[in-house]
Amino acid sequence: MTERLAVPRDEYGFLVDPADWNRELAQALADELGIGPLTPGHWRIIDYVREHWLKHQAIHSVQQTCRHFGLDRKCIWRLFGGPLELWKVAGLPYPGLEAYTYMENEEPDRPAAPFHAGTTARPVSPADGPAGP
């Protein structure tokens, strides 16, 4: 496990250089964060967020990311646990303090019931896209 993760990371756990990233590392990071095996439903979002960062060097709204794939706004929480986990698995660097703060504020510290009745978090569903390989 430790060997798979032998790349420089900062104090927050972000990759220092996004160029160090590869799919094997992403899976290792996902394992470390307790996300489990990455499915095609995960990969397409990871690829999308990475592409946006490499193009703009900026964060991208969770809402627009979900919408791009025709998913509801809670898909990032269901699939990754929160926006910071997605950012880390995608191998992206520290996004800046206010961007980090806003992402952190959207992290459910109390995952038991992060959302209001009707949109309650649920396990990964077929609606999130293709299941595992």
Partner: peptide, 12 residues
């Protein structure tokens, strides 16, 4: 504050 440059804003 969020460090969004012009192209990122335009995209959003």
């Amino acid at each position: 504050n969020l460090g969004l440059p012009e192209p990122a804003l335009a995209d959003t």
